[in-house]
Amino acid sequence: MGLTHKSTGINTFFAELYSEFSSTEAVIALAGNPNTGKSTVFNSLTGLNQHTGNWPGKTVTLAKGFFKHKGDHITLVDLPGTYSLLANSVEEQVARDFICFGEPDAVVVVTDATCLERNLNLALQVMEITSQVILCLNLMDEAKRKNIQINYEKLQRLLGIPVIPTVARNKEGLDDLKAAIHAMAFGEEKPSPKIIYYDDQLEKALDELKKELEASFSTVINSRWLALRLLDGDIALMKKIFKYLSELHN
């Protein structure tokens, strides 16, 4: 136990992140399933302005980069590709921790348009944590080739968040994506994402616990999501939050 939580923990990472990009005006996280072209989106948005770093104490690498839009400096963090955020693996844990504690101004969920259903699972889970979510419908060209048509305006309405179709390989739709990121990061766009409704019994327990949580956590973290995790028995997450809070206070 030579290293303390403080020296290896996430806060060091954030300190490093913010010191490296001292001119950072907004931080955006890039989430998505593996093989959705997430890295292509990241590379096309940031070009050569990127840097790969290790999550302290973990072997998962996170790439960071930035781009400028309307004169504002926007930092992108490329999270590891995951199918869910239930923290079964180191990758999922890192992705979840960043969305929870990294205080990103928005999360872009990159999805594969040819298998939307599987990709939506992750998007819905991200939307449970934060309302600042943008859905990037990537690989639209492959979807077209496979005769898959997606009504993305309707999708936007159903999800309550911006949906941007792209072909990152050919740089199609990336300007729209940049504009959407900028609008959300600087508060011009206020999404109201769809909330997943669970069964009545679970909802009742959620409400009860949520009320208790709101007093101490509502400024830091979505209390409905936290209540759900606690009911799921994720004590490790709770301990992480306590630590995070006490480090914030110091």
């Binding site: 939506l120 898959i148 048509q149 009504n151 309707k154 999800l159 069964d199």
Partner: peptide, 18 residues
Amino acid sequence: VVANIYQQAEAITQQVVQ
């Protein structure tokens, strides 16, 4: 919880994907 999320993802997909 997981089943519920999957169901909703499926429901949404059915509405928007042809």
